[in-house]
Structures are given as structure tokens and as C-alpha cells.
């Protein structure tokens, strides 16, 4: 895609704001619409855009599938592990009140951590799915479509 200079320039302009917006949606989720799921998808979409312009090999250099698969599992572990931690601290599974003195702080802590796990899993799953499909295709010429 070396000759698509418009695509390359526009993607360069778009990708950083997309990543920042994903982080905003992730960590501002208690105040504004969105949360881990939406943030993860937007985060993955930025990488997908990068790959659409620069090719799948450039993407797998930045985000190796092996690492993504590990991150997908880690996100689930963070969510499920939070439940184990709250149990160990004497509350119910995913009962966040055990996480801090102040009940509202405890809830907020629990929600932020759990949403982080959701975002991590969703982003890496979406990206791995894209890579799984895209890396099976032979190189397509623009006219093939």
C-alpha cells in the first residue's frame, strides 16, 4: 500500500487520538458512557486501522499474537482474581466492599480494576481475531476486490 499516501497520512492523524480516546473511555467510564468493553474495541480498532494501511506483518511486529493471547487470558484472570481477592479479604465473590475502608472508594476501586480486565481481554481478543483472519489471506491486490 506504499502508494496510498492519503490513507497513510490520515491514519497517522487518526490513530493517536483513537488510542487516547480509548484510554479516556476506559478510565473515565464511571463518569461518562462507556467502559472496558467499548474502550477495548476502540483500542483494537486503532491497531486494525494501522494494519489495514501498513499490512498485517507490521501489526504482528507491534502486537505479536502470542502476547495478545496471553493478555486476553490475563484480563479474564484480573476480573476473576478480583473476586478471589475480595473473598480472601472476607467479603463475597466480587463483593468490593472489602477492598477499602470507605465503602464508596472500595466500590470504585473494584469497578476500575474489573473494567481494566474487561478492556484488556476485549482489546486483545478483537485484535487476535483480526490477525487470525487476516494472516490467512494471501496478499490481495487492490483490484482483487
Amino acid at each position: 500500500m506504499e502508494h496510498h499516501s492519503i490513507l497513510r497520512v490520515v491514519s497517522k492523524l487518526l490513530i493517536p487520538p483513537m488510542l487516547v480516546y480509548a484510554l479516556y473511555v476506559q478510565f473515565h467510564g464511571e463518569y461518562s458512557p462507556g467502559g472496558g468493553f467499548q474502550a477495548g474495541v476502540v483500542f483494537a480498532a486503532a491497531f486494525v486501522l494501522y494494519s489495514l494501511v501498513h499490512g498485517i506483518d507490521a501489526l504482528t511486529r507491534v502486537a505479536p499474537p502470542r502476547v495478545l493471547h496471553a493478555l486476553a487470558g490475563l484480563g479474564v484472570l484480573i476480573f476473576a482474581g478480583t473476586g478471589v481477592v475480595t473473598m480472601a479479604l472476607g467479603d463475597a465473590y466480587l463483593g468490593y466492599y472489602a477492598l477499602a475502608e470507605h465503602p464508596q472508594h472500595a466500590q470504585e476501586w473494584g469497578i476500575v480494576v474489573v473494567e481494566f480486565g474487561v478492556g484488556m481481554t476485549v482489546a486483545s481478543v478483537m485484535l487476535s481475531l483480526f490477525i487470525a483472519f487476516a494472516s490467512h489471506t494471501r496478499k490481495l491486490d487492490d483490484k482483487d476486490w
Binding site: 458512557p33 467502559g35 464508596q104
Partner: peptide, 9 residues
């Protein structure tokens, strides 16, 4: 209970 504005979250 929770003290955050986004009820959906």
C-alpha cells in the same frame, strides 16, 4: 452504594 455518576457502569 457506589458513589459514581454512571449508573450503567
Amino acid at each position: 452504594d457506589i458513589g459514581i455518576p454512571n449508573v450503567v457502569a
